[in-house]
Write a protein that binds this DNA or RNA. Sequence first.
DNA 1: CGCCAGATTGACCTACTTCAAGTGCAGTGG
DNA 2: CCACTGCACTTGAAGTAGGTCAATCTGGCG
Lengths: 221, 221
Amino acid sequence: MTLRPPPQMSSPKIVRDLFSTGRKISFAAGATLFRDGDPVTDVYCVESGRVVVTRYAENGERQILAFLFPGDFLGMSFAPTYNSAAEALTPVTVWAIPHAKLTSELATRPELGVAYAEMSARILNNVLDLVFTLGRKNSHARVASFLLHLRDRQELLALETERINVPMTRQDIADFLGLTMETVSRAFSHLKASGAVKFGSAADVDVIDLAKLRAEAHVGS
Amino acid sequence: MTLRPPPQMSSPKIVRDLFSTGRKISFAAGATLFRDGDPVTDVYCVESGRVVVTRYAENGERQILAFLFPGDFLGMSFAPTYNSAAEALTPVTVWAIPHAKLTSELATRPELGVAYAEMSARILNNVLDLVFTLGRKNSHARVASFLLHLRDRQELLALETERINVPMTRQDIADFLGLTMETVSRAFSHLKASGAVKFGSAADVDVIDLAKLRAEAHVGS
DNA sequence: CGCCAGATTGACCTACTTCAAGTGCAGTGG
DNA sequence: CCACTGCACTTGAAGTAGGTCAATCTGGCG
């Protein structure tokens, strides 16, 4: 039995404490938390499950902007409407507080502002990683980077790191990485053939050779 | 003579007021403000000129994460080191304050926290637009979107909107849009041939048909 | 005028997409 | 218990957008 560090949440404790004064809401897998263009009512913090944040084009094409894990903050818009949609990937529970409550708390508790600024910087940094991946990496490197990203998130949550759980479909991964389903599938087959990983099922990836997986993730475009 | 609205800054007035208590620094075109991995000392606000924020891969490939305009905030990291580099694209003047000063002000002035949170949300939203562009648009649409982005920024600064100033090289644009220099050049030629724009010089693009340019920007991948 | 860095254009090549068959597996019903 | 069904995934074959390599072109500047 290995010793694990305690789970690290991506949002600071003071922010999660604020959410714990709010409502707890459950969503079934596939349910919509909010849509692009909906008036902003609440902000959320994921308690359990996986949430996906997306943006749709006029023609219906979708780009997944993030996969969210427990502890992740959600609904960071100070515009009148949300600028992206959020859907439950698995059964999900979230904490919700009114957006107005977030604003009023920020306006009266400066220590919350510092924590919120730190959290914003972390979120921005994660998205910039995605920009780098989309702009500069080929399909194999994108998929390898994606697996490592999931692994990092599991590690932060003090879950196992040998087996990576992939709860999203190949199409979801494709919509996140700017590829097609088929290309994602081929990249997985390549990683398997290279000996970096093997598959329990399509949704469970065992890391065989972490160094090799990391090398695959750093190849240029 | 057309009536222009007053310039809109991307950072709130309260944030710019904070910077105006700091030092003003000038950089020559091409100078480095900070490098990826440097210890975080200051945060910045662009006063004049254009700044480029980049991230480099081990192999030297570069991804431009943002082109910054007057009023733009820069150095949003609460980690010990910067996670991206910043360079002056043109001659630049910036306001700088110590990062510790930003933190201490945030910790004592809650109204600053609200403004900072709003600014963070706006920055995040802009980067998510870039993610969408990189993930879902073809080369023509990427370049058209880029021109419209520059135009929007000029409009916010109450500059002219008929002529778009493009102070960066084709290579810079390519490094921003995840393309090659040649593909960017071909996309420009395509936009010119389509009648959407014409060229004063390589650095000055006149918008001939805004609706057509917008249509080009919305084509799928 | 001649130089030179950046930009354009052309020809060819490849990584990814597209379209089309399979394959495997979980859920259902006989 | 095993066939049936549907859906996600995999694999193959062919097409294409964009990359690569290489030859001009352009315009700003000494």
